[in-house]
Nucleic acid binder design. Structure first.
Length: 518
RNA sequence: GCGGGAUUAACUCAGUUGGUAGAGUGUCAGCUUCCCAAGCUGAAUGUCGCGGGUUCGAAUCCCGUAUCCCGCUCCA
């Protein structure tokens, strides 16, 4: 697939009402997107299919719809508050950004190991250092000598330079404040009364931070925590027996350093997550079970199931809570990337929350007569990423040749029928001879059955077919001259463009059948 | 966050050395049309991303800024 397919999909998304840039008339907002009429349907269909598969079809999984704003202690316990505020530093020479606590150590005054990929870069770096820091370094091939480690105690992990920006905190969680009073008022009062007088910059920041933190709340960076926090309530209310799962769909928020690839990585996104609580000894089996179940699910709706892959996390990339993790990755136009992660979170989260809350988060096995803290297997999928994946998977340009030998390109979204925003287009072949009236009756029957259907009488029939191909409508029903004689209409398949006649009376049933069996 | 590119109608894009904006597609109305886009007639739609500056005059030159794309970087 060519790289400009993304451009075409982005364009189609806007033109046909799948995805718009947020706040577009005001110049947009970085990484925020609105799902238009068709996008809203597509996203909802994906989520509904997920929910049906994860919750409705399983005896041992139940749902939850939790608050996005949670007590800050939740994030202290989960480790997000600490982990989301690591000091980051930019290298002023090679522009690399890195975490200060993970950088190579170098004592003050010790020779800095400046080294670059090639001589050219070394030369450019030497010139930059001379210009900006008035320091002439000795250049030997791709290495530079003469720079000394600073009081910082570490150097750039990429080029070894000690020329670094200030450490800056990047809070990856969105912070806001709860309560009718603005913490800024309290800060202003404190400053006015001279309470902050004589504080250093660092102390001042801390003092202000303390006031701010009193009313601070955070938007969840993952939906998972609520399922751990409500573990005991749900287990008791529903009398669940381990193993069992809690599923949730909802928005999460992260101040991503870099947003990229349209809706792929954005600050506000939607997740479909399930926490599956099991006996520790069985965690390995359940991890295998769920990663296979999830892969099957993704492939079920795909035209190109071979583009979905497993990738096991290396030990050094595992999250702090995870023991083992498989990503389901997809071959996006820009390369392979994450779509879902299936992790063994062990008993990390329940134990942390038990510890921080002082509550017992255990399970009592009535048969074995013993208490234990369950292990958790977590399949965490991106719903909005899923939407993007299925759009890319479905996007197709076909070369057609008509009766006169003229070639023509057909753009078609081969969305799985149950994912398609509109299931049926009802079209009078021409706008006369009572066809529109008949067509209206047909489309209303679909609406009464709750099937998303559109009536369209504009332009030539071929154009209407193409328009619906482009938004992925799987079935077009056409009322023609024969309809009023024998009460039959044609049903056209989006992918094959083949038509067959069905009776008007059975049209809804036919489509319902097709949707069920697709 | 860095580097590069871009931003002109709903979409894709023209726009000359600076002189008050065009095309195709799409949309809408009507005609025509009995089955796979681009038949006929007509119509609507532009703060040229936004804000400054230079100039008699800026879509065009300069500065800033926002957003998008690509690459790096980053990414629990």
């Amino acid at each position: 697939m060519s790289a400009d397919v993304m451009q075409k999909i982005i364009s189609l998304c806007k033109r046909r009402g799948f995805v718009f840039q947020s706040s577009e008339i005001y110049g947009g907002l970085k990484s925020a997107y609105d799902y238009g009429p068709l996008g809203a349907e597509l996203k909802r269909n994906i989520i509904n299919e997920w929910w049906a598969d994860m919750v409705h079809r399983r005896e041992n999984v139940v749902g939850l719809d939790a608050s996005i704003i949670m007590q800050r202690k939740v994030w202290e316990a989960s480790g997000h508050l600490a982990g989301f505020s690591d000091p980051l530093v930019d290298c002023l020479v090679c522009k690399n950004r890195f975490r200060a606590d993970q950088a190579p150590k170098l004592a003050e005054g010790v020779e800095a190991p400046l080294s670059f990929a090639d001589k050219g870069q070394a030369k450019a770096a030497a010139e930059l250092i001379e210009k900006q820091f008035s320091l002439t370094l000795e250049r030997r091939g791709k290495d530079l000598h003469g720079a000394k480690g600073s009081g910082r105690g570490y150097v750039c992990p990429a080029c070894g330079s000690p020329f670094l920006s200030k450490e800056r905190m990047f809070n990856l969680m969105f912070r806001t404040s709860i309560g009718a009073t603005d913490p800024l008022d309290e800060i202003a009062e404190a400053m006015e009364s001279g309470k902050f007088a004589g504080l250093s910059g660092r102390e001042l920041r801390q003092a202000i931070g303390e006031i701010n933190e009193r009313s601070a709340v955070y938007l969840r960076p993952e939906t998972a925590q609520a399922m751990f926090v409500q573990f005991a309530n749900i287990q008791q209310a529903m009398a669940m027996k381990v193993p069992f799962g809690i599923a949730q769909v909802g928005k999460s928020f992260r101040n991503e350093i870099t947003v990229e690839h349209f809706i792929f990585r954005s600050c506000e996104f939607e997740q479909m997550e399930m926490e599956f609580f099991c006996e520790p000894e069985t965690a390995g089996e359940w991890l295998d079970f769920w990663r296979n179940a999830r892969m099957d699910w993704w492939r079920r709706y795909a035209n190109h199931p071979e583009k979905f892959h497993f990738r096991e996390h290396e030990a050094d990339e595992l999250a702090h809570y995870a023991d083992k993790c498989y990503d389901i990755e997809y071959e996006y136009p820009w390369g392979q990337g994450e779509l879902e992660g299936i992790a063994n979170r062990t008993d990390y989260d329940l134990k942390k929350h038990a510890q921080h809350s002082g509550q017992k988060l255990e399970y009592f096995d009535p048969v074995k007569q013993q208490k234990f803290v369950p292990y958790v297997i977590e399949p965490a999928a991106g719903a909005t990423r899923g939407l993007l994946v299925y759009l890319i998977d479905a996007y197709c340009e076909e070369q057609l040749t008509d009766a006169n030998g003229k070639t023509d390109t057909r753009v078609v979204l081969k969305l799985h029928p149950r994912l398609a925003p509109i299931k049926v287009a009802v079209l009078p072949l021409v706008k006369k001879d009572g066809m529109p009236e008949l067509a209206r009756k047909v489309v209303e029957a679909f609406w009464q059955h709750g099937i998303a259907a559109r009536y369209d009488e504009t332009h030539a029939i071929g154009r209407r077919y193409r328009r619906h191909d482009e938004i992925g409508t799987p079935y077009c029903l056409t009322i023609d001259g024969q309809t009023k004689d024998d009460q039959t209409i044609t049903i056209r398949d989006r992918d094959t463009m083949e038509q067959r006649r069905v009776s008007v009376e059975s049209a809804v049933r036919e489509v319902e059948e097709l949707l069920r069996n697709s």
